[in-house]
Design a protein around this nucleic acid. Structure first.
Lengths: 208, 208
DNA sequence: GCATTAATTCATTCAACGTTGAATTTCTTG
DNA sequence: CAAGAAATTCAACGTTGAATGAATTAATGC
């Protein structure tokens, strides 16, 4: 356990010595607790306790639980423009593998906390659903599919999204072994061809 | 809206006339409310109100909110044994398509409510994670993979699970069009080959 | 048909939650 | 170095949730 700290150093009232970023500590703690418990399950008191500060700080810095949630979840770990440019830089045959590798790179880097937070926030916030759809379909996969001029772009983007989200669910949320602990290249080798087919291959009802 | 009923017929105290299965009404209502709001977001009062009975009935019949939840979520819509037998009945080349068709058949039949309930319950109940893993990996996909004697059975089962769960997420939870509304055979044609490859094909690091 | 048991509602209790205002301490500015 | 601003804790409030026990009515057994 990394969360079992020695007894906290006895809080005093009033402003604390400089150099302690309470705001950042709260965001980090909220990130963890929201990931573990979802929006409704997470309590302001628990978040504040993990950050080592008083619950009133949530109101002071974020105006309440809702504001803190917004700060935590809507902080996406990549810039869409860069991402699309990087993905499209290379030969078309390697596109599927690049998408998978990038997907894992982004979410592995968050130590497996942000993806569950996103998924679990779908429970209570439709806004998160719309955010995920816009981000993944419209800003990333939609652009990639559009660039390669495939037929049925919406369906292809949706299929890619389904495989990526599924990998995220199995690797970060449900943690099925061996996929949860497999190294990136193993997953890329297995899933890359799937994405490649969804992007540029034959996906059934092409005509009609 | 199917939930807008005419005003309920004025409750009286005491035992009500026979023929009204309060228990079943509660399970059905809980199913809906848990799907919409998740475990923490759902309130016993809201469930009881939708069932048209008092909240105390949850305690009387299920011993509390937790007991009601267990009744609702652990009620899986198929029998594992039948399912595996049906899937393995046919030629090996059509196995991927049969798995996808069956998956959609099962969950489409629940009117899109049970799958979200399962996913959202992952937020607050690790038990649900274990249940999903056991059901999907051990009892269904694990058996299928074992029967066809493929190498790396765990990895193959996990890959299949990832694609199926991803389809479920996109179709039932996030509801991305056109996948959310596509007919079954369109999805089968697109996703079947993926499952087929995960089950019987080449998935990268075959040796070592 | 009377006594017993089961089912249901109501009023209440207790705990936990998010939020607020005052009190207190440190930092910053002139 | 004094005065004001900022940051923080603490105690409390109002609300809401799940759970409980008594009261009430219908069904069941003898």
């Amino acid at each position: 356990m990394t969360t079992a700290d020695p007894p906290p150093p006895a809080k005093r009232r009033g402003r604390r010595p400089a150099g302690q970023d309470t705001r950042a500590a709260l965001v980090e703690a909220a990130h963890q607790v929201f990931s573990e418990s979802g929006y409704e399950g997470a309590t302001v008191r628990a978040i504040a306790a993990r950050a080592g500060v008083d619950a009133a700080m949530v109101n002071h810095w974020f105006g309440g639980k809702e504001g803190l949630f917004a700060q935590v979840v809507l902080r996406l770990p990549v810039d869409p423009g860069d991402l699309v440019a990087t993905l499209l830089d290379g030969d078309l045959d390697g596109l599927g593998e690049r998408v998978v590798r990038r997907f894992l790179g982004v979410w592995d880097a968050t130590a497996g906390g942000t993806f569950p937070a996103l998924v679990r926030s779908l429970a209570s916030h439709d806004q998160a659903t719309i955010g995920l759809r816009d981000f993944l379909i419209k800003h990333i996969l939609g652009r990639v599919v559009a660039r390669i001029r495939a037929d049925q772009p919406q369906l292809r983007a949706g299929l890619c999204a389904s495989q990526l989200i599924g990998i995220g669910m199995v690797r970060y949320v449900a943690k099925f072994d061996p996929l949860a602990t497999a190294d990136v290249e193993t997953v890329v080798a297995a899933v890359g061809p799937t994405l490649q087919r969804y992007l540029t291959g034959e996906i059934g009802a092409a005509d009609c």
